[in-house]
Write a protein that binds this DNA or RNA. Structure first.
Lengths: 231, 231
DNA sequence: TATTTCGTTATTGCATACAAAATTGACGAT
DNA sequence: ATCGTCAATTTTGTATGCAATAACGAAATA
């Protein structure tokens, strides 16, 4: 039924990887759920080998828990785990912003400004309608910023932590005012870069992340109290 | 000389992983060197499958660079890369120390104090003689601290960044005075924990990491100007 | 009825076989 | 001599088969 998207390279591992990651992030696979190599393989029309490789990759990235002779389980994300993700993002991305303020070229700043404009233009559209586009533009903004900072290793680390679908989830948690605030943050970061003020850029980014953190944790509390009646 | 140690679990993947990681970190495999699944496999008396799995794991951890249909290369660590590693360590570990100051139990602080004492006791021994033990005790200290902070995800992230063998390398870069300073830092961090002073603990840890950073970068400059023997 | 033991089954780990892609080297054209 | 082309070889990617280990369940005993 799904068979996922064949991906660009059409490589079997990519296919398995994309399918699994999507299933995990979309909630199709519940937390703690046990996954079997064989089942996934036949479902995707592949052999166990590429599925197994995808398992390992996802394990290294923290999405699956692997126990040697038993199988793999979908990792569980506690509120504390999510808090820690935002903690890391805040620490690293604010540092990155500061460095970018010292090193960004005119062209890079220009491109960042354009992305910030795009973001603002979407601010008044209905939330659900531009969710994907907002996520994409936002991801581009943050990525370009790391590039401007010239921090390749930090980028790798961030990629490991800040998953695009999770970003989408963040926007789903935003209230209209918070979306506008987020867009404003982007503009402010660009302004700090133009001024080559590392402190300012760093502080603005810190606000940006903490604001997102707040929105997500509020969402979590809502989800926690709404659908469960046993407490 | 190779064939590595059969490791505890005697699992083939572990064997391959341990062998490869050791070879990379010891410099037996030069940077940018191309590794072939088949060669490693026959050399270790295994099939390609577990070797391949080890490759992927090491790739995810940043020790190997994997390009889809070409093979794997030993990753190159530029001075900037190493700088970034210390940047991350500084950011995360100082935050962790601050959190530990707020949450550590008496028992945990006691244990940390004992480790700090052990460290001091070794401070006056010849550098090379206690290199391994120093690394072990140091690693334990930092690990226990993360545990006291109750930050499981951050611990995973740190594990990815701060490799034990690299820690050993740090101690090899220390001058006698720096070893004593490092031991003093540990004591100071324990004191900050006893006082439940997050700012203090955080600042002490920041000093601790920056001091190590400084020592390693100095070592790098020395190696760079001196003739090196690795191919 | 609860619990332990043992045999069956299912699932993972590893090895091998085969397919696809890339690298290499020789050859020929300019 | 240099560059480009193409085939031979090597190397990676995937599939399958077999062995080892763990999960499951039934039977037997207390």
């Amino acid at each position: 039924m799904n068979v996922a998207t064949p991906a660009k390279g059409a490589r079997a591992v990519e296919q398995a990887y994309d399918y699994l990651k999507n299933a995990i992030l979309s909630g199709e696979f519940a937390a703690r759920m046990h996954l079997r190599e064989g089942a996934i393989a036949t479902q995707l029309g592949l052999s166990r080998t590429p599925v197994r490789e995808a398992f390992r990759r996802l394990g290294a990235e923290g999405w699956l828990e692997i126990t040697p002779n038993a199988g793999v389980k979908v990792a569980e994300w506690s509120p504390r785990d999510i808090e820690e993700v935002f903690e890391v993002r805040m620490l690293i991305e604010s540092r990155v912003a500061g460095r970018a303020a010292q090193r960004a070229t005119e062209a890079q700043i220009e491109r960042l400004r354009a992305l910030a404009e795009q973001m603002s233009a979407m601010a008044d559209c209905p939330v659900d309608q531009v969710l994907d586009e907002r996520s994409t533009v936002n991801a581009e903004f943050h990525e370009l910023l790391v590039e401007a900072a010239g921090s390749q290793r930090l980028k790798r680390l961030l990629d490991l932590v800040v998953e695009i679908p999770m970003v989408k989830w963040v926007f789903g948690s935003y209230q209209p005012a918070e979306i506008r605030r987020s867009a404003a943050h982007h503009h402010e970061i660009v302004a700090a870069l133009e001024a080559h003020d590392a402190e300012w850029a760093s502080a603005a980014m810190k606000s940006h992340i903490l604001s997102a953190h707040h929105a997500v944790m509020r969402r979590l509390r809502q989800l926690d109290s709404a659908p469960n009646q046993d407490q």
